[in-house]
Every structure is written in structure tokens, then in C-alpha cells.
């Protein structure tokens, strides 16, 4: 972040500078107070960090769906949280069947592969249908129209899945190879967290190379630059947009299963909050920017996990955990004030 002092400070600049200083002071004082009390030892902070990274990598995977779609269509697909829910909720039935037949724990890799496949394919199909039915007919409409459609589609999907699968919370069967801890350099870490972080990194690296190195990836980048010129160059824009939604869906489906590794339960409304958080992460990183979405997700996850306790506990604020969302969304507002295009976003 580059800050250059303007030659003459206007009133607004003055307020913004005051705000910046106030925030830095607040964060420093709060952190110092918390750390000096020494409530959490080194192990405690490390646990919080790992929790945050695991949670953040799930945000990042979902955020990629927002960012990819924004990249090609310049619209926010608010139904993406429901795409995430659709896959993992459907895969619940596959998982239960596999667990009942003994395959899940008898041949766990095969079982997990099927669960991932079901979730990813379902999310992909939902995302592609969503684009075809709800967004494509409105592509030439004013920008607010697809936004409202997206919100409508989000509610439609939520309540469709509610009537399909019921309103209750379902619990995934226990996957035995994922219980317990790994010892990594003498530090015990939950196996689920390791798997979540590693899988998320692999998926993100895979996506990066897909977008940078393949023909389809190049077509996506071309469409993102300019749809009309891309069409003149012989690129089938509709197909590229469908592919973008499909990839976003696949990532969301995978994120769903990783989410279940951490939280175990699914319900029809589970997509809403992760969806909003991932959207925040995408904006934080610079919407439309793939690396930005990854960074934004990780940053948000870690900040949510460590921030409230680090900044507020030392100041005597009780039960800081419930202020997690306050911290997260305050951050979003601040980033938008000081860096409207996000961490890695570019000016347009």
C-alpha cells in the first residue's frame, strides 16, 4: 500500500488520516494489552492461526467462484453460496450410503473420491443451469437487474433444497482416516485441517495454471478483457462463460466437502454466511483477481480467528468471539475506504 501525503490536506483527507492513525493505535494498544496479559501461550496462538488458515482456505475456494464470474461478466453471483450448499448437501446422501455399506471406512480414498465427485459435479451442474436460466437472458440488461436476479436465485435455490432435503441439520458420517492428529515437526495438527489446507492449495494452484496455461484459460482471460473483441477473434463467449461458472461450481463443491471435514454438518441455509464471507474475501483481494481472492480468503480467515481476541481481549471486552463478524466486516469497510480496488485489484 503506497500512501503519499497530498500537498494540501482537505477536510476529508484529514478525517481519513485521523482514522488511519486511530486504527493503527487501536490495533497496537489492543494487541499489546492482550499479549502482555499472556492469557494464551504460543501453542494457543498457533492453534488459532491454523484454525484461521483452514477456514480461510475454504473462503478462498468459494471466493474464486465470485471472482471468476466477476472477471468475465462484471456481476456478483450472489447465489454462489447456494451453489456451494447444493453440492455438499447432495453429497451427504452419497456419504451416508457409502458409510452404511462400509465402503467409506473400508476403502476411504475411493469413498472420498466419490463424495468429492458427487459434490463437485452437483455444484457444477447447478452453477451452469443457474447461468443458463437466470443470467444469460439478462446479459444485456442494466447491471442492477442480474444482481436482483442473483438474490432471487439464491432464495429459490435455498428453499428448493429445503423442500428437497428437509429443514433439519444433517450430520456427515465419521471418516475414520481423518480423525486424530498429524505430527508435523513435533506440532500436533488435526488431520482434517491439514487435508483442508493442502487440498485447497492444490486446487488453487491447479486453477492458476488452468487459467494461465490452457487454451480455455486464455479464452477466459480474453473474454474478461473484452467480450466483443474476443467474439471477433472466434471465441465462443457463451461457452467460455458457461465454463467459468462450471469451474466456480467445481471449486465450490470441493470447498463444501472441505467445509464438512471441519464442521461436519449440513443444512439448507449453510451457504449463506460462507457465501457472504467469501464475497468479502473476494472484494478484499480485489474482485476479478484470482490470486487476490486466494489472499483475501486466507487473510479474512486468519483475521477472524485471531483478530477479535488479539485486538479486543486486552482492552477488557468480554466474550470477544462473538465480535468476529464485526471485526471482519469493519475490515471490509476499511479496505474499501483506503483501497477501493482491494489488495491486488486494479483500477479500471
Amino acid at each position: 500500500m503506497r500512501l503519499r501525503l497530498p500537498e494540501r490536506l482537505s477536510f476529508v483527507d484529514l478525517i481519513l488520516w485521523g482514522l488511519r492513525v486511530a486504527i493503527v493505535v487501536f490495533v497496537l494498544v489492543g494487541s499489546y494489552a492482550t499479549l502482555s496479559q499472556g492469557v494464551l501461550g504460543f501453542d494457543g496462538w498457533r492453534t488459532l492461526l491454523i484454525v484461521g488458515v483452514a477456514q480461510g482456505s475454504i473462503y478462498a475456494l468459494i471466493a474464486l467462484g465470485y471472482t471468476l464470474v466477476y472477471g468475465v461478466l462484471f456481476m456478483i453471483n450472489f447465489a454462489h453460496g447456494e451453489v456451494f450448499m447444493a453440492g455438499v448437501f447432495t453429497a451427504f446422501f452419497a456419504a451416508t450410503a457409502l458409510a452404511d455399506s462400509g465402503i467409506l471406512n473400508g476403502n476411504p480414498l475411493f469413498g472420498l473420491a466419490i463424495i468429492f465427485a458427487v459434490s463437485m459435479v452437483t455444484s457444477m451442474v447447478v452453477a451452469v443451469i443457474l447461468e443458463r436460466v437466470a443470467y444469460r437472458p439478462l446479459r444485456r440488461a442494466p447491471r442492477l437487474v442480474p444482481l436482483i436476479t442473483a438474490i432471487g436465485a439464491s432464495l429459490f435455490l435455498q428453499y428448493t433444497f429445503r423442500s428437497l432435503y428437509g429443514s433439519g441439520v444433517r450430520s456427515y458420517p465419521t471418516i475414520e482416516i481423518l480423525t486424530g492428529t498429524f505430527d508435523i515437526a513435533g506440532v500436533p495438527i488435526q488431520k482434517t485441517q491439514v487435508v483442508v489446507i493442502v487440498s485447497a492449495i492444490l486446487l488453487m494452484v491447479g486453477l492458476y495454471f488452468f487459467v494461465q496455461r490452457t487454451r480455455t484459460g486464455r479464452a477466459m482471460r480474453a473474454v474478461s478483457e473484452d467480450k466483443d473483441v474476443a467474439a471477433m477473434m472466434g471465441i465462443n463467449v457463451d461457452r467460455v462463460i458457461s465454463t467459468t461458472f462450471a469451474i466456480g461450481g467445481l471449486l465450490a463443491g470441493a470447498a463444501g466437502i472441505l467445509y464438512v471435514f471441519l464442521f461436519n454438518s449440513v443444512s439448507f441455509s449453510m451457504g449463506f454466511l460462507p457465501g457472504i464471507k467469501a464475497f468479502t474475501a473476494a472484494v478484499l483481494g480485489g474482485i476479478g483477481n484470482i490470486v487476490g481472492a486466494m489472499l483475501g480468503g486466507l487473510f479474512l480467515g486468519v483475521l477472524e480467528s485471531i483478530g477479535p481476541f488479539l485486538f479486543l481481549d486486552g482492552l477488557g471486552v468480554p466474550s470477544t468471539n462473538q465480535l468476529r463478524d464485526v471485526v471482519a466486516f469493519t475490515l471490509l469497510v476499511l479496505v474499501l475506504i483506503f483501497r477501493p480496488y482491494g489488495i491486488l485489484g486494479r483500477k479500471e
Binding site: 492453534t47 454466511l273 462473538q322
Partner: peptide
């Protein structure tokens, strides 16, 4: 040792539990 609060829709209690464990 502490009276903490969560939201009914929360799913992640790991950070909360880590801070509770500190007490």
C-alpha cells in the same frame, strides 16, 4: 473462568474453545 457468547448460526467454535481452554 469466563462467560462467553456465540451466535445461534455460528459453526466455528474452535477459536472460542481455544481461548476458553486458556482459562
Amino acid at each position: 473462568t469466563g462467560q462467553e457468547a456465540v451466535a445461534p448460526t455460528d459453526t466455528d467454535f474452535r477459536t472460542l474453545l481455544t481461548t476458553i481452554a486458556a482459562g
